[in-house]
Each structure stands twice: as structure tokens, then as C-alpha cells.
Amino acid sequence: MIINIIISTAAALVFSPLLIGIINKTKAFFSGRRGSPFFQMYFDLYRLLKKDAVRSGTTTIVFILAPVIVFCCTLAAAVLIPISPGTGIISFTGDFVLLFYLLGLARFFLIISALDTGSSFEGMGASREAFFSAMAEPVVFISILTILRLNGTTSFTDALGGGGAGNWIIISLATVPFFIVMLAENARIPFDDPNTHLELTMIHEVMILDNSGRGLALMEWAASIKLWLFSLIIVRIILPGSVLSFLLTFVIAVIIGIVESVIARTTLLKIPQLLFSAGIIAFLGFFLSFSKIFVWS
């Protein structure tokens, strides 16, 4: 149990910045550049952790506490996911609710720390983050219900940490929405462009505009852990049986890089539609998981 916790924590802390590196390298490859090194984000984090900070006079204690809370909640959510069969540290009916609500708490503090600065830009990002994540949550939950039904268990970590794969159509119908939501929740293209601050579509990056020094390091690290968390879930859904399947998260990172290279960012108004269609796919998957017609054939 303790060993499992240590392994998951270490994996989340160590591998997550690498995912960002892989995505950036893939994007660089597609645009014909050499790109920054794979380990760039480690250097960035190290540099930020050493730095002094500047904090706006408008802010309150919320702004000071928020990076710690965001980081810890995201990390705790990531640790809940078993990274190889049989390594779940906690399992009960509805454990995924705890997992995603921890992310929700992190998001809550991210949003109010953005509003704390009184900047209109950060308010804009906060408003969008609040709305899009509210749309994304039902989609994720329906996908998870599908997976739970396939595995016949009410605990999500049990389903991820063991059990066999079900029918591949249903699994892909559950995974595709998850992938779309992963792009939305982690502020990737086509929902948000992680490389811009001041475009009209800014969501995540703009919320941490006023963070600096260690606060910024924790926020960035938390964001990469969140990406690690989602890609780990997808990997565990697709390949629940294998021990080293977590290495596939790097493949997911490459796929994200490819998606970011070939797809343009959608307009803001289309984002709810995109999430809505992800919901439709998730719903079809859930439907198939108990459909009588499917059982006949």
C-alpha cells in the first residue's frame, strides 16, 4: 500500500513534465523546427522554484494558498489512479467522484485565485474555465459509467487496476469522449492554445498570468500532472492488463502533439458543441453497454 502510494506519486511527479516535453517536441517536428529539449519543463520548474516572486497588492491570502491547494489536490487525484494492475490505493463505490471532485476543488481555487487579482483578463479566463469544465464533467462521468458496466464493478480504480477489456467498440466509444475532454480540461488545441496568453481564446494560461516564482511553478506542475492523470486513465482503459502500460502515456502525448499540429483551434462558441458531441458519443457507448440488441449479437 505505502509502496504503491510512493510509486504513483513519484511517477506523477517525475513523468508529468516529460509529457509536455514530448508534446512540444512533436509539434516542433511537425513545424520543421528542432524544438526545445525533452526536459525543458524540468529546467523551467527548477528555475521558477529558485526565483523570488512578485504579487499584486490587490490579492489576498487566497492567492497565496491557491497554488498549494491546486498542486496537492491534483497530485492526490493522480495518485488515486493505479498505474499498473492491482495497485489501486483506495476503492469504494463512486471513488471516481472523489477523484474528479478533487480536481474540481483544484479548479475552484484556480478560478478564485484568478479572480483575486481583479484583472479583467483573468476574469475572462476564469469564466470560460468554469463553464467548459461544467460541460465536460457529465461527459466524463457517462464514459466512466460505461467502463464500470463493462467491468461489472462500482469502483473506478478497481476497473482500471485489473479486469479484462470488454468489447472494443464500446471501449472506443468510452475513450473518444475521454480524449476530447482531456484536450478541453488540459487547455490544449482545439479548445485553448497553451502557447498564447493574450488571444481571445485564452483560458488556462491567462488564469495564472499574475503568478510568479514558486506559485507559478506549482501551478504549471499541477497542470502537467493533470495531463498525466488523464492520459494514464485513457491508457488504463485501453490496456488494463499490462504492467508497463503507463509507458503508453508518452504515445498519448505524441498523439496530442499531432492533434495540435494538424487541427486549428475552434472558435469559442463552438466549444460547447464539441463537448456536447463528445457527450453524445459517450451516451451511445453507455447505451450499448446495456442494450439488449448488443447482447443478442
Binding site: 526565483k51 523570488d52 504579487r55 499584486s56 490587490t58 484583472s119 483578463f121 499574475d210 516564482g213
Partner: peptide, 13 residues
Amino acid sequence: RRKTVTDVETWGC
């Protein structure tokens, strides 16, 4: 602890 400067305004871009 690191040094933190707090008497600045929110960055107005």
C-alpha cells in the same frame, strides 16, 4: 522563504 514584492498593481497586460 523567498523575497516577495507585494506593492505592485495587477498586471494590466
